[in-house]
Design a protein around this nucleic acid. Structure first.
Lengths: 171, 171
DNA sequence: CGAAATAGCACTTGTCAGATACGATTACCA
DNA sequence: TGGTAATCGTATCTGACAAGTGCTATTTCG
């Protein structure tokens, strides 16, 4: 289970680029920078523009730039836009009827309330993180030591996200 | 974006049934109860048994029962088993190489650290919820009002990660 | 021995993310 | 005023994986 789709992942990457290069950039520049397909990057930028996160300017010297300061955009907001809403379970709204009916179990599903609470807790975490924090190499999110020491009790998989230069073919 | 797959969703439902009926039950009984396909329920139970959450007993009077008390199982543990691990982004381990290479960006991806912090925060939330709490109709998770009012603060570095037994009981 | 249940595979189906392509539109510049 | 380069909008294809089904082996009880 992956929380961020690759699209959202790349969206973050692209936004961080636009954040650092205040002059902005066009799709091809960004694609080149990250070694991605220009069409793919263009698509993500289009979607970001459609949701008002970046502003696109057409024409020869056109390109994209952040439409809002990064510290006014929360991770929750971005995900709710890029992904189609953040749901915990399927049995919320707008579902094909048969599933809804199965889940509601004649209205006796005792899980909905508690799961909604959990959902809101997760949302809080995402709401508490702005893109500015995420992009700031000296921000509170970049000194995980204190937080990690708190959270690494039974220590599951992830821990570190392989920040090494990646043993891939590269050279 | 849906956090719980339908399988995980039904797994919770089935576990809650086994939690309430301490005598346990067989796949067909559970399927009948929830109006699901017996094969489907059997499959989920098999997987739950494989991960040690329920114990299966074969034979004519066989069936399934919880193998561990519900208050020793956290939502995080269940999800990590049922779903294939809980990741925030794709750029962790075990990826097709080309994606990995793209993500590593010659090792200059500044997002990894901060995203790992966010990931751990989310994990904290899931770790703080036990199945017993989730299944208890009178538990703290069934009175969302107080919790919501608590958690709606900007909460940047406060966090402190609710590692407490969710005793945030509305005072 | 036979019925009933789990255990373990193998398989089909359906959906959606991932990714691409192309025409329309807009803006700059000569 | 026409050409070029860029975004915009949409339509489409594809592959991976979740969702769901079925069958056979094994175990247990009567």
């Amino acid at each position: 289970m992956t929380l961020l789709s690759r699209k959202a992942d790349y969206a973050l990457l692209i936004l961080s680029y636009l954040h650092q290069n205040t002059g902005g950039g066009n799709a091809r520049t960004v694609a080149d920078k990250f070694g991605l397909s220009p069409s793919f990057v263009a698509n993500i930028l289009k979607e970001l523009a459609h949701h008002g996160f970046v502003a696109g300017h057409r024409g020869v010297k056109g390109g994209y730039a952040l439409a809002r300061p990064a510290d006014t955009i929360t991770l929750a907001e971005l995900l709710e836009s890029i992904e189609s809403g953040f749901r915990l379970t399927m049995c919320n709204p707008s579902l094909p009827d048969q599933h809804h009916e199965q889940c509601s179990l004649a209205g006796a599903c005792t899980l909905k309330g508690p799961l909604t609470v959990v959902h809101n807790r997760l949302l809080e975490v995402l709401r508490a993180v702005t893109l500015a924090e995420l992009f700031d190499p000296n921000g509170s999110l970049s000194q995980p030591s204190a937080l990690l020491s708190l959270s690494l009790l039974p220590a599951t998989t992830t821990t570190t996200c392989r920040s090494e230069p990646a043993t891939v073919t590269q050279a």
